[in-house]
Design a protein around this nucleic acid. Structure first.
Length: 425
RNA sequence: GGAGAGGUGGCCGAGUGGUCGAAGGCAGCAGAUUGCUAAUCUGCCGUACUCUUUACCGGGUACCGAGGGUUCGAAUCCCUCCCUCUCCGCCA
């Protein structure tokens, strides 16, 4: 959530910044209009309540006979106040709705753009590999090796579901364990969070109310299945005031993620690139405000530290204003090359969310002992998304005979196995 | 799921209709004092919104789990819900 004071006091700046992300200035005007009405009503109500308090105290001291006379008058005032309170509640709901609907402001240095096509590749590492044969897409490899079973996934659940079996499952588990160990070495605290969260938690990260239609939920119990571990990790300290010494907080978690993707027909239909359920290792940082831009750079490095040892070509993309996540002020994506698919795969997305989520989650810290609490800043990044990392490994490490060599760093996690070959799994 | 107890400020903990934003303690901040990292004393010390204001100070309102209700007036009485604890049941 944005700071309403910023909207009031630096309206033009906010309009310009949001304009770069494709938001019409009239949206801000609308918020300010409701804000003005809300404040006026609040003020009137405050005065009525002040009068009631004052006169009620006097009334208490009066003799019983006099008391009766003024009781009726006081009751009318009470009715007026009740009516005002109902009106205020309605306006506040409207106000909250509008405020929750405003995305975060991009940093000034984020490149302008309308969408994905305008993102800027800022770095590419590793030349594209040459194969002496036609590299296969991972679904071919997976089925031939018996490590991915698409048909049975569909049978169990439906389209876009699959299962990993044998060494495929083990490879995924190896990747997860290896990543988590790396994160631990980088200073992240490993968490196993709930995979279902309540509405308040999902609202605090900005996933609700805007993206309600992309999440699975249990209405009866007010549970939302997490679309990413960012949600529980970022929400962990909701409604808390942290001690300054606690910051920065670095958290990591491996979790399955659930997304009600509105799958467009014909796009990414094959393989495991996009599904309703996938595994991910996530990083979340809660930091002091003045450090968050530097922490974002460090976060990218922490993600790259997972990418590099795999020896797969990758690139870093700076996300433009039109493609930023809702809560982000700046964002970088990391993409790995998939020779079978012939495309770059987004395996990580690192964002600085400023105080946007922390304001919603009401997570603050005291900069000085005894000082006033301030909102902290939050960041999140994948470290990494598993299916796409698995794709990249499979497609880059495939051999002419259809086997897949296990990357060196993963072998200790695979019981020393050096390749996945054809044969009984 | 059933029965009982309870949810109060950063923490602990009083408070059962008005003088309670809330005693007391701890922690924190400022100062005093002390022959030495401790002790003692004094003062300050919730959050948000708002008015006045350059700012400070000050005034007002809201907040005692959440939402309703009763009342001139609710932390306090009533209703609903949520959560925690204890016991029972069920269970991976």
């Amino acid at each position: 959530m944005l700071d309403i004071k910023l909207l009031r006091e630096q309206t033009d700046y906010v309009k310009a910044a949001l304009g770069r992300a494709g938001i019409a200035p009239t949206e801000i005007d609308q918020v300010l209009e409701v804000d003005a009405r809300r404040r006026r009503l609040q003020h009137d109500l405050d005065e009525m309540r002040a009068r009631r308090t004052r006169e009620s105290k006097e009334l208490g001291r009066l003799a019983p006979a006099e008391r009766e006379a003024r009781r009726l008058e006081m009751r009318q005032l009470g009715d007026q106040i009740s009516a005002g309170e109902r009106e205020l509640t309605a306006i506040e709901h409207r106000f909250d709705e509008l405020m929750l609907g405003l995305r975060n402001l991009p940093r000034d240095w984020v490149p302008d753009g309308k969408g994905e096509a305008d993102n800027v590749v800022i770095r590419t590492e590793g030349g594209l590999p040459h194969f002496a044969f036609q590299p296969l897409p991972h679904w071919e490899l997976g089925e031939r090796l018996g490590i991915i079973d698409f048909e049975r996934g569909v049978k169990l659940s439906g389209t876009r579901f699959y299962l990993l079996r044998g060494l495929g499952a083990r490879l995924e588990r190896a990747l997860i364990a290896w990543m988590l160990d790396l994160k631990r070495d980088q200073g992240y605290l490993e968490i196993i969070p709930p995979l279902m969260v309540n509405t308040a938690t999902a609202t605090s990260t900005g996933h609700l109310p805007k993206n309600a239609d992309t999440m699975y939920r249990d209405i009866e119990e007010d549970f939302w299945f997490i679309p990413t571990a960012e949600v529980p990790l970022t929400g962990m300290y909701r409604d808390e005031i942290l001690a300054a010494e606690q910051l920065p907080i670095y958290l990591t978690a491996y979790t399955p993620c659930f997304r009600r993707e509105k799958m467009s027909a014909g796009r990414d239909v094959r393989g495991i690139k996009r599904g309703h359920q996938f595994d991910k290792v996530e990083m979340v940082k809660l930091v002091r405000p003045e450090t968050s831009d530097d922490e974002l750079q460090a976060l990218i490095e922490d993600a790259l530290a997972v990418v590099r040892p795999l020896n797969i070509p990758y690139r870093v993309v700076q996300v433009c204003t039109g493609d930023l996540t809702y809560a982000g002020v700046a964002q970088y994506d990391i993409e790995m090359w998939a020779p079978g698919l012939g495309e770059w795969l987004e395996v990580s997305s690192c964002s600085n969310c400023g105080d946007f989520q922390m304001r919603r989650a009401n997570i603050r810290y005291r900069p000085q002992k005894g000082g006033r609490p301030e909102f902290v800043h939050s960041l999140n990044g994948s470290g990494l998304g598993l299916p796409r990392t698995l794709i990249a490994v499979m497609e880059n490490y495939q051999q002419a005979d259809g086997s897949i060599v296990i990357p060196e760093v993963l072998r200790p996690y695979m019981g020393g196995i050096d390749a996945i070959r054809r044969g009984p799994a």
